[in-house]
Design a protein around this nucleic acid. Structure first.
Lengths: 338, 338
DNA sequence: GGAAAGAAGGAAAACGATTGCCGTCACGGT
DNA sequence: ACCGTGACGGCAATCGTTTTCCTTCTTTCC
């Protein structure tokens, strides 16, 4: 509850233990050569006063703050969270604390945060955001390393870690092929959206490698359930035969699933269904639960953090790094044994 | 890209401007009395060197770090995010930076974070978490003020800001009454869950005030769509007449909505439907879109942050503070004019 | 013309911790 | 007895800023 005594300083500890401040420092950090008895006495005094070394004062001397800034450029959302968490976890393991900054899509705010972080002498920064498209670098010639996670920097020299969406799409197709489907349709988000285009292209390419093609050109629309349902209508009206649908995300897949059921097609017996993003809310609420491609965002965040730590220690990894996606199989592509 | 020159210090600026460090400090902070020309010269030198005062060194002197820690106790999730964001926003406006700490439900980790934050001399802490039930205080007799947001502390002296769930449930009932419904059912989450009990009790109470009661005892189950669908089956099998359902959350409401439609009841004409939490993913995907009670978590976070700032400035607000919920009307309780 | 007031800016002492350099013991060997 | 050698700990410089004195130098007024 209420604020108790003020913070104890190293001088307080020294006084209580009856030694000099230098000795306290040595005792607590295991430096120098001290009698075991002295060390103990100091430790005990520190314990009594609940002494915690002032990190600010300490970094004044070492030049390192063991602190990094994380800037989300567009507002923090469903995709940024796991990235943030993964990064926070990896950094925490490296004894680093994280400053959280929500840029809210406002360049002014963003620049303000960069200045603040620099004045706080962070050892590095991680930039993340909602879209996977490239964005302008957060600043030129910054005195600390920067890693872009999920989002990527338009400067190819910058270190960016992005999900391997093309690889993910290929995995989706491979899985459908593996469960014996060959007449595959693709329903996805808006064509102006980078992810939609990349995923569609990779799927097409992978099918071509198997000597196949999509049963119809990709259906571009929105990222919503509503679009998923509409698209099924279009597909059925076209009278094209299909035994699988690869969906651009899980919301579309769920819409597709509902519409197929309503139209009397069984999932997965008549039509196998695979989504993208592996968003538990959708994949698990759907009937049957959806097979999906997981972007592995937490792993991506962790990996970005590790690259940042490496860069801070003098080994940067410039360039764009693709982080692999993962196939998660559920019942929409495979009948349970039962 | 790559780390450029080292950080400039105030001494560098002083040298470039041809004045002493003290003068630079005064010039940049608008203290002391200096010739306008000198002030300009210093500012220009600072700009050239991209000088940003070292916040650590500064706080060494002032005793304030303009920094707070935010600890999420259980892992960061759908409910914590808006709270975090609201708090971050309010704190940012107060020129404070935020340390993010994800406790991941691990008390060890939590204690480690508290120590770290103390050593970084944060001016205060905000604790948040998934559940609204009370939790043990994060630490006894801490030297800085702490505010609990969303979650509450079991020590009634601590400052906790929690959503007014009872008030929200009452608003839901009032809205249903206002649109002319009187035969109301309640389907909600597991009975062992605090929120489920509180909301059910408040709903019952508000109905009693209108001389009414629920058409059947509250149906406790899970927080899922599946349960919503099942519960409708139970309700219909019971042959009880009802013209409205108040659901414990939006997922249940969506399940209820689907099941009702499947059973040939129209929403809202035959049955009005109201959810809880106002989770856009559910309220908007549902057909028709769901009326719901918004916990106003971002406002709650903001309010918690403001209380923390006040406490830091010496005016604490001990005790439990209920933050009002908000009714958001959509088509599941009102036929659009069209 | 001289004194007092005021403006401008420098010097130095904090703030809290770390660390290299020394001084002082005690002890052992010769 | 004397010297060398570790072991033990104190002293003081240092990190980057702020802030409180001071010292100068200009003015201005009588």
């Amino acid at each position: 509850m209420g604020k108790s005594e003020r913070h104890a300083t190293i001088a307080d500890v020294a006084a209580l233990a009856g030694v000099s401040v230098g000795t306290v420092s040595k005792a607590l950090n295991g430096r120098g050569s001290l009698r075991e008895e002295t060390r103990m006495r100091v430790r005990e005094a520190a314990r009594q006063l609940a002494f915690e070394a002032n990190a600010g004062a300490r970094s004044l001397h070492s030049g390192r703050t063991y602190t990094v800034g994380m800037i989300t450029t567009d507002t923090i959302g469903r995709f940024s969270i796991p990235v943030l968490m993964g990064a926070e976890d990896a950094l925490g393991a490296g004894e680093m604390s994280v400053f959280l900054c929500d840029g809210r899509d406002d360049p002014i705010r963003e620049q303000y945060y960069v200045k603040t972080l620099l004045s706080r002498r962070v050892d590095g920064m991680i930039v993340t955001g909602r879209r996977t498209e490239a964005r302008a670098p957060i600043g030129a010639n910054l005195p600390v390393p920067v890693v872009y996670a999920f989002i990527s920097s338009s400067d190819p020299q910058d270190c960016s870690v992005v999900p391997d969406e093309a690889g993910g799409a290929r995995k989706a197709i491979e899985h459908l092929l593996a469960v014996g489907r060959t007449r595959i349709a693709h329903i996805t988000g808006p064509e102006h959206h980078d992810s939609a285009r990349v995923r569609a292209a990779a799927a097409t390419e992978r099918l071509a490698e198997a000597g196949l093609s999509l049963v119809a050109p990709p259906l571009f629309g929105g990222w919503s359930e509503v679009w998923g349902r509409q698209a099924v209508g279009i597909l059925l009206a076209g009278r094209t035969e299909f035994d699988a649908v690869f969906c651009g995300n899980d919301q579309i897949a769920r819409g597709v699933c509902d519409a197929l059921r309503a139209a009397g097609r069984r999932v997965p017996q008549d039509v196998a269904l695979i989504g993208f993003d592996n968003w538990d809310v959708m994949t698990e609420a759907s009937q049957p639960p959806l097979t999906s491609i997981d972007l592995n965002l937490e792993g991506l965040g962790r990996s970005a953090a590790e690259m940042l730590l490496a860069a801070i220690n003098g080994s940067p990894s410039p360039g764009r790094h693709a982080h692999p996606c993962r196939l998660v199989v559920r019942e929409s592509t495979s009948v349970p044994l039962s």
